[in-house]
Simulated assay, not measured.
Amino acid sequence: MSDLPITRFNDHFAVAPQLAPEDMARLAEAGFKSVINNRPDGEGGPAQPLSADIEQAARAAGLEYRYQPVNGAAIQAQDVVTFGELVKSLPGPVLAFCRSGTRSGNLYRAAGTL
Rank of each mutant, 00 (worst) to 15 (best):
D3Q: 15
L4Y: 06
N10A: 03
D11L: 02
H12N: 13
A14C: 07
A14Y: 07
V15M: 03
A20D: 10
P21A: 06
D23W: 13
D23T: 14
R26M: 00
L27A: 06
E29P: 01
A30C: 06
G31N: 02
K33Y: 04
S34Q: 10
N38F: 01
P40Y: 10
D41K: 09
D41W: 09
G42F: 06
G42R: 11
E43H: 09
G44C: 01
A47E: 07
A47Q: 10
Q48I: 08
P49C: 03
L50F: 12
A52V: 08
A52H: 05
A52R: 13
D53K: 15
D53N: 15
D53Q: 15
E55K: 07
A58I: 04
R59T: 08
A60S: 11
A61W: 03
G62K: 03
G62N: 03
L63Q: 05
L63H: 05
L63K: 07
L63N: 04
Y67I: 01
V70R: 10
N71I: 14
N71Q: 15
G72H: 09
G72N: 02
A73H: 14
A74L: 14
A74K: 15
I75P: 08
I75E: 08
Q76S: 14
Q78E: 15
V81G: 04
F83S: 13
G84N: 09
G84H: 07
L95T: 10
A96H: 09
A96Y: 13
A96P: 12
F97C: 05
F97R: 08
G105P: 02
N106G: 00
L107G: 12
Y108I: 06
R109Q: 09
R109D: 05
T113S: 14
T113D: 05
L114S: 02
